[in-house]
Amino acid sequence: MDELIEAVKALAREEYERAAKKFGGNFNSPHEVYAVILEEVEEAGDEFDCIRGYLAEYWDCVKNNEVGEWPLYIEKSAIQAAAECIQIAAMAYKARR
């Protein structure tokens, strides 16, 4: 897990660099920090909601001995959620610079 955390930290710094090139390296106010991070948190939450829904659908398949595409959907949403969380970390990093 420690290696994964270090890799995620590196991805967050890379995301900060990408965002800094596009939007600048600093925020203009604490209000902007809050709004940007809130937007990313809401987007991550939407992905987690999808994961919960897909997992419920998958459980129904499992109980009925059916095979479905739900693990694929879970994987895709988990990756999207991870990307949103990396953006949250990058914007928090930007806020404390």
Results as ranks from 00 to 15, higher is better:
Ile37Val: 10
Ile37Leu: 00
Gly45Leu: 04
Glu43Phe: 01
Val36Tyr: 02
Ala20Gln: 06
Val33Tyr: 03
Arg96Ser: 04
Gly24Leu: 07
Ala89Cys: 15
Phe27Leu: 00
Arg18Gln: 05
Glu14Ser: 14
Ala35Asn: 09
Ser77His: 02
Ala7Arg: 12
Gln87Ser: 15
Ala44Met: 12
Glu39Val: 04
Glu32Ile: 01
Ala7Glu: 15
Gln87Cys: 14
Lys76Tyr: 05
Glu6Phe: 14
Leu72His: 00
Met91Arg: 12
Asn65Ile: 07
Glu42Phe: 15
Ile37Cys: 10
Tyr93Cys: 03
Gln80Glu: 14
Asp46Gly: 15
Gly45Asn: 09
Cys61Lys: 03
Glu42Arg: 14
Pro30Trp: 03
His31Thr: 12
Lys76Val: 07
Val33Glu: 04
Glu84Arg: 13
Phe27Ala: 06
Glu66Gln: 12
Ala10Met: 09
Phe48Cys: 13
Tyr73Gly: 00
Ala19Lys: 00
Gly68Gln: 02
Ala89Asn: 06
Gly24Val: 07
Asp46Ile: 11
Leu55Phe: 08
Val62Ser: 08
Ala95Pro: 01
Val33Gln: 01
Glu47Pro: 08
Ile51Glu: 02
Gly68Val: 01
Lys76Gln: 06
Glu32Met: 06
Gly24Asp: 00
Leu38Gln: 09
Ala82Gly: 14
Asp2Asn: 11
Glu69Lys: 07
Ala82Asn: 07
Arg52Trp: 02
Glu43His: 05
Lys76Cys: 07
Lys63Leu: 08
Ala95His: 06
Gln80Arg: 13
Gly68Glu: 00
Lys63Cys: 08
Glu43Arg: 10
Tyr34Thr: 02
Lys21Leu: 03
Ala7Ile: 10
Lys9Tyr: 11
Tyr16Cys: 15
Leu38Met: 13
Ala83Leu: 13
Met1Gly: 14
Glu84Asn: 07
Leu38Gly: 09
Met1Asp: 10
Ala90Val: 12
Leu55Lys: 01
Ala7Lys: 10
Arg52Phe: 02
Leu4Gly: 02
Glu66Cys: 12
Val8Met: 15
Tyr73Met: 06
Ala19Glu: 05
Ile37Phe: 00
Glu3Pro: 03
Tyr16Glu: 02
Asp46Lys: 09
Glu66Asn: 07
Lys9Leu: 11
Ser77Val: 05
Ile88Phe: 13
Glu69Tyr: 08
Glu47Gly: 14
Asp46Glu: 15
Gly45Ile: 03
Glu47Met: 15
Val8Thr: 15
Val36Asn: 02
Asn28Arg: 12
Lys76Asn: 09
Ala95Ile: 01
Gly68Phe: 01
Cys50Ala: 11
Lys76Ala: 07
Asp49Ile: 05
Asp2Ser: 11
Glu6Gln: 11
Lys94Tyr: 08
Leu4Phe: 15
Ala20Met: 00
Gly68Met: 05
Glu32Trp: 04
Asn28Val: 12
Lys22Thr: 04
Glu84Ala: 14
Lys63Trp: 09
Ile5Pro: 07
